[in-house]
Design a protein around this nucleic acid. Structure first.
Lengths: 152, 152
DNA sequence: AGAAATCCTAGTAAAGAACTAGGATTAAAC
DNA sequence: GTTTAATCCTAGTTCTTTACTAGGATTTCT
């Protein structure tokens, strides 16, 4: 039940992007440097976020990325689902009927997986990017050294 | 964010155990057969559940396992944590101070991980084993064929 | 004594995660 | 119009973890 680096790095990257893209597009290189993420790997994460319509890109010199919508309209859930796929704890056929688990009407545990899924989605959809950006700014004002880097 | 087979198989096994151990201990072999789980693998899962004090074992011929406490006092959370370890989505140092992420006071995302963790635990701790056992019995009455096996 | 069970530790094959690599394309700046 | 700085696209590769498998030792009932 762990998030991969995709979700962890990606969320940090998007908070960073939201914070620095108010006046001009932000390049992968600058995010990668600030967040200590491999530039080449981050590239792929940005591609996923773009594909899901959370960010837009500007190509060529001076280009970079900006948010595709307002930070208050992007939830942590949007970000994590874009990067991790569905957050449900089990790929249960009872949810998407295309898969073939023939036991779905006799299955007891599907009730459990469904409840977990619901509660996760509720939690992550309630948190919006703008909140995290404000938090981040407040944190940086308090600790201006900026030497401490988070791995998660 | 997926549960491994440990959590999935283990929960099914424990529901099965609860259901069949009312009169006598239940062997790994019989659970494995009913639930289509490798006997040798299930052995290891049972060891974890025992270590966490959820079940007790009776050795020797005619032996097997029984619940260590009443089904109503065992939550899905107890089971999943015994098998999967902590359910928190990120091994965040801000939670257990022994680890060394020096950024914990500047870290924004820890707030997110904490919220997710809380909501997952709340969901799984609210579901007790006895509920699932009743559900399971009701299901089997409705579909007595018993041919359908769940993979999750 | 034999059979049926748990207990314990180690090995192993397959899958997935986390990058790395090499370039193609686009567009601003000079 | 060439250079430079950026995104875009697809593969390959290494490392870790998962999901078992294997081989026995021990216990207890019959």
């Amino acid at each position: 039940m762990k998030l991969s680096t995709k979700g962890r790095y990606g969320l940090r990257a998007l908070i960073d992007l939201a914070q620095y893209s108010e006046t001009e597009p932000v390049s992968i290189g600058s995010i990668a440097a600030r967040q200590s993420i491999s530039e080449r790997y981050l590239e792929q994460l940005m591609a996923m976020l773009k594909k899901e319509g959370l960010i837009t890109s500007i190509r060529g010199a001076g280009g970079g990325y900006v948010l595709a919508k307002e930070a208050k309209d992007i939830s942590v859930g949007d970000v994590l689902r874009a990067l991790e796929g569905s957050l449900e704890p089990v790929d249960c056929a009872a949810f998407h009927t295309d898969e073939g688990c023939d036991a779905s009407d006799i299955c007891v545990t599907k009730y459990v997986w469904h409840k977990i899924n619901e509660s996760i989605n509720q939690a992550v959809d309630a948190i919006k990017l703008d909140t995290l950006v404000s938090e981040s700014k407040a944190m940086q004002d308090k600790h201006p050294s900026g030497e401490m880097k988070c791995k998660n």
